[in-house]
């Protein structure tokens, strides 16, 4: 009897599930990763309120953070409430220049009249610094101000 090689049928590995695996990976990364926001150097524990409005149009918002610096910055900056604009500490006098920069770089010209200053202020910050910020905003005619707040029942 001649030696007949037995033909093994190797089952082809199905590739049909590959797209699914990739899809699941995509889902995983979409969920886990977060869009990079500006890193916040100050503690902003916002107060609670009832008469809230949603800030719908994010393209109009200009975030101003006011609060005491977080622990890692307290050595350098002290613990009194400070202002943060974009990625840096600032003083109230920096606001007009910052607003003009935002107008050039971030906000399209047809929306300049609708710009909103979204103020994320710690509830323990004192009004003195906030009044200064408000005065600077009035000087550059950015008069729509939204104080961020949480929901209270």
């Amino acid at each position: 009897m001649p030696f007949k090689k037995k033909q093994k049928d190797t089952p082809a590995i199905t590739t049909a599930s590959l797209p699914d695996i990739v899809f699941m990976l995509l889902c995983f990364f979409m969920v886990v990763t977060k869009m990079r926001d500006a890193e916040v150097f100050v503690k902003t524990n916002v107060p609670n309120a009832t008469e809230l409005q949603k800030l719908e149009d994010k393209t109009l918002l200009n975030y101003i953070y006011i609060g005491s610096p977080t622990k890692q910055y307290q050595e350098k900056m002290g613990s009194a409430p400070r202002i943060q604009l974009d990625d840096a500490f600032a003083t109230p006098e920096d606001i007009p220049v910052w607003v003009e920069k935002r107008k050039i770089n971030n906000i399209s010209p047809d929306k300049h009249g609708k710009m909103i200053a979204a103020m994320r202020i710690d509830k323990d910050a004192k009004m003195g610094i906030i009044t200064k910020v408000k005065t600077e905003l009035r000087k550059v005619n950015l008069r729509k101000v939204s104080y961020l707040a949480g929901k209270r029942n």
């Binding site: 699914d20 899809f23 699941m24 889902c27 979409m30 969920v31 309120a49 008469e51 809230l52 409005q53 949603k54 800030l55 719908e56 979204a118 408000k134 005065t135 905003l137 009035r138 000087k139 005619n141 008069r143 729509k144 101000v145 939204s146 104080y147 961020l148 707040a149 949480g150 929901k151």
Partner: peptide, 28 residues
């Protein structure tokens, strides 16, 4: 299963919008 997972994440992840109290400052 993949589809179910996708739907689960979409539902579970509420789209976060900030809420605020709006004001208009007086002219300078």
């Amino acid at each position: 299963v993949a589809f179910a997972l996708l739907i689960f994440w979409v539902v579970a992840q509420a789209i976060h919008t900030d809420t605020a109290i709006d004001t208009i400052l007086p002219p300078y």
